Amino acid sequence: MRQFLYALVTGIFGAVLLHIIIILGVPHFTGQDAYTRVTQEGPPFVFHALGSRPDKTGLAGLDPFLKVAVCHFDITRQPLSLVAAGDGVDFWSVGIFDQDGNEVYSMNDRTSVAGDLDMLVATPVQVAQLRKTPIAALAETILVEHRGTAGYVVLRALAAQESAGPEAQAFLKDAECLPFTGR
């Protein structure tokens, strides 16, 4: 009887563990994880606006009150500069994600400097180099340390009323996601 219970408990534990591994591994093996889908939107270092209906990769901005754009990047050679003027938009937020879809950093217009997006995403080595030789133009820039070299940015703008839609779209259109050139 003891051996039967041991075999039963071991079998149940093994089945649960196997199911968890399969569920967590499916996005990796199917190529349908968030990072892969964002890279299929278009070239890197460009914000790609998401529509209200899923596109060819399955991405969509489904919230009718938020306009959304995504940008993927690789900071192996140089940091990423994120810049957007927040005037004219009631609320915006930005999230930086690594290749695995883990959020590295997020902020919104309430926690930014003067309501504008001015951020630099860099590897730890690049951050150390920037701090060693400070650039005056980066005095109010938010410096974000990214442990990996690739990832994606999600930029959202609130359009609570239909009349606010054009301002939110303009905010996303004018936003920059470019390699840092050292202003």
Rank of each mutant, 00 (worst) to 15 (best):
Glu103Ile: 15
Cys177Gln: 07
Ala136Ile: 10
Gln40Ala: 13
Gln129His: 10
Thr111Ser: 15
Ser93Tyr: 01
Val16Trp: 00
Leu8Ala: 15
Asp109Ile: 01
Asp55Lys: 03
Leu24Arg: 12
Phe65Leu: 11
Ala69Tyr: 08
Phe29Tyr: 15
Val16Pro: 00
Gly61Gln: 05
Leu50Ile: 10
Leu117Trp: 07
Val9Arg: 11
Ala15Arg: 05
Arg183Trp: 07
Gln129Cys: 03
Glu176Ile: 11
Val9Lys: 08
Asp90Arg: 06
Asp63Trp: 03
Phe73Asn: 01
Asp118Cys: 00
Ile12Lys: 07
Pro43Trp: 01
Asp174Pro: 02
Gly51Tyr: 04
Val104Leu: 09
His146Glu: 01
Leu17Glu: 04
Val125Lys: 05
Asp100Gly: 08
Gln3Asn: 15
Gly31Arg: 13
Gly95Gln: 14
Ala168Asn: 09
Val154Thr: 13
Ile21Tyr: 10
Tyr6Ile: 14
Ser163Lys: 14
Ala128Met: 05
Arg183Glu: 11
Gln3His: 15
Asp63Gly: 04
Val9Trp: 12
Ala34Trp: 05
Gln40Glu: 12
Val68Pro: 02
Val26Asn: 14
Phe47Gly: 08
His28Asp: 14
Trp92Asp: 04
Ala60Ile: 10
Val94Glu: 07
Gly86Met: 02
Ser106His: 15
Val16Asp: 00
Pro64Gly: 11
Tyr105Asp: 10
Gln129Met: 13
Val154Met: 11
Cys177Asn: 06
Gln40Asn: 12
Thr133His: 15
Ala170Phe: 02
Phe73Tyr: 11
Gly95Ala: 15
Arg110Leu: 07
Ala7Gly: 09
Ile12Gln: 07
Phe4Ala: 15
Tyr6Trp: 05
Gly148Tyr: 10
Leu24Cys: 07
Ser163Ile: 09
Gly148Cys: 09
Ala159Pro: 03
Val38Arg: 01
Glu140Val: 02
Asp33Gln: 13
Gln32Val: 14
Glu176Tyr: 08
Val153Asp: 08
Phe171His: 09
Ala160Gln: 03
Val104Pro: 00
Arg110His: 09
Arg77His: 03
Thr10Val: 14
Val127Pro: 01
Leu155Ser: 10
Leu120Gln: 02
Leu8Lys: 14
Leu82Gln: 01
Ser163Gly: 05
Gly151Phe: 06
Glu41Gly: 01
His48Glu: 03
Phe65Val: 14
Ala122Ser: 08
Ile135Tyr: 04
Glu167Leu: 11
Arg110Thr: 11
Gly101Cys: 07
Leu120Val: 04
Thr10Lys: 06
Ala139Pro: 00
Pro179Asp: 07
His146Tyr: 07
Glu140Trp: 00
Ala139Arg: 07
Met119Glu: 07
Glu103Tyr: 11
Gly95Met: 12
Ile75Arg: 07
Leu80Phe: 09
Gly51Arg: 04
Pro134Cys: 06
Pro43Ser: 12
Ile75Gly: 03
Gly31Phe: 05
Leu24Pro: 00
Trp92Leu: 04
Thr10Gln: 04
Thr57Ile: 03
Val153Pro: 08
Ile142His: 05
Val38Gln: 03
Val16Leu: 05
Glu162Asp: 15
Asn102Thr: 13
Arg156His: 08
His146Cys: 02
Gly151Val: 01
Asp174Asn: 15
Asp74Leu: 05
Gly31Glu: 12
Arg156Ile: 05
Gly14Ile: 11
Gly11Asn: 12
Leu18Asn: 05
Ala136Leu: 08
